[in-house]
């Protein structure tokens, strides 16, 4: 019979004893590794980094990075989320749930803007920028003053109006019984169908008749190719980058990607006048909603027209 030397047996037991519940799998996470990923903020302030910013400082940042989608006053462009307003609407027929009317904690706003906004460039804002923009969104909701400075300490003074309105799940809240006969009064029943015109049946994507083709790979996005640009297009490049690329750079929300020849050819064939008109006044298309001037309604018409030239010429 095979016999373990006594010493080996002892050390074997010791090994198991030390790792009673552990398999010893996984590598230690270093401080540096943890701090790179540990981005969460809690209502008690845990996780808030050093930094500060006022609503006033946040205004230009918000205009540049957020207003195209959320509107200059937080009212939301097109179908993008509304960020402000809706006070005292929660018990009404059409409640409007916004940061100001609904969110219980300011920490949530800091955390969320930092982790997920601006939508096309998440985790791109510096800590100070997040303080500034958070302060500004709070200001748009009449929760802080324009000159209020948000920082790790003043943060604790911000009380959200709806903070005390949440309670822990108390379901099951309804009790049905397993009745088999005379369970409802047929005379008292009203039978209501779908509201005509609202149902999306038949509103499937135009190409829903595809069969085999929808297993094929999506066509590769076309790389923007080098083209000689007109003067207008040269002028428009800068404003495109600043105001339009948020959506048109990555193809967010149905916006045709600049450089995607196939995606633009039909559009370009409408003629420049139509493209510019659509860009200035905005429109609802099949692919999505193009807000007037991309949401920057203070832009001059010819600035928008130049940006359109740049976009169209770069997509041929």
């Amino acid at each position: 019979m095979f016999k373990l030397p006594k010493i080996a047996l002892l050390s074997l037991c010791a090994a198991f004893g030390a790792n009673a519940a552990s398999m010893g799998i996984g590598a230690p996470a270093s401080e540096a590794e943890i701090s790179g990923w540990d981005i969460d903020i809690r209502p008690d302030g845990m996780g808030l980094p050093v930094g500060a910013g006022t609503a006033e400082q946040g205004e230009p940042l918000y205009e540049a990075k957020c207003a195209a989608c959320h509107g200059s006053f937080g009212e939301g462009a097109g179908r993008w989320p509304v960020l402000a307003g809706g006070e005292d609407s929660l018990a009404e027929e059409r409640p409007e749930k916004t940061v100001g009317s609904y969110w219980p904690y300011a920490s949530t706003l800091w955390d969320y803007i930092h982790r997920a906004m601006p939508y096309p460039q998440p985790q791109s804002l510096s800590d100070d920028e997040v303080y500034k923009i958070t302060a500004y969104v709070l200001y748009l909701n009449d929760i802080v003053d324009y000159d209020f400075e948000l920082n790790q300490d003043s943060f604790k003074d911000v009380v959200m109006p709806n903070q005390d309105s949440f309670y822990v799940d108390d379901r099951p809240d309804v009790v049905n019984t397993r009745c088999f006969e005379n369970c409802a009064d047929p005379e008292a029943m009203t039978i209501v169908g779908t509201i005509g015109g609202l149902s999306p049946t038949g509103h499937f994507k135009e190409d829903s008749g595809v069969s085999a083709s929808h297993y094929a790979d999506e066509p590769e996005a076309v790389e923007s190719k080098a083209v000689a640009l007109s003067e207008a297009a040269e002028r428009g490049k800068g404003s495109y980058d600043q105001y339009c690329a948020a959506c048109h750079g990555a193809g967010i929300a149905g916006a045709p990607k600049v450089g995607d020849v196939a995606g633009w050819s039909g559009r370009i064939s409408q003629g420049m006048a139509t493209l510019v008109e659509h860009a200035i006044n905005g429109y609802q298309g099949d692919a999505g909603y193009m807000p007037p001037k991309g949401g920057f309604t203070n832009l001059a018409d010819d600035v928008v027209a130049d940006a359109v030239s740049y976009m169209a010429e770069s997509s041929q």
Binding site: L90, K97, Y102, F166, Y167, V168
Partner: peptide, 30 residues
């Protein structure tokens, strides 16, 4: 991350909470 209390992030406050007729809301309706 293990902690001693919930984080109340956007997806458990702004979203995924259940607004009741009295204007209050249920939270953690898992």
């Amino acid at each position: 991350e293990v902690g001693d209390q919930p984080w109340y992030h956007r997806e458990e406050t702004s979203k995924y909470t259940d607004l009741m007729p009295d204007g209050r809301s249920r939270k953690f309706t898992f």
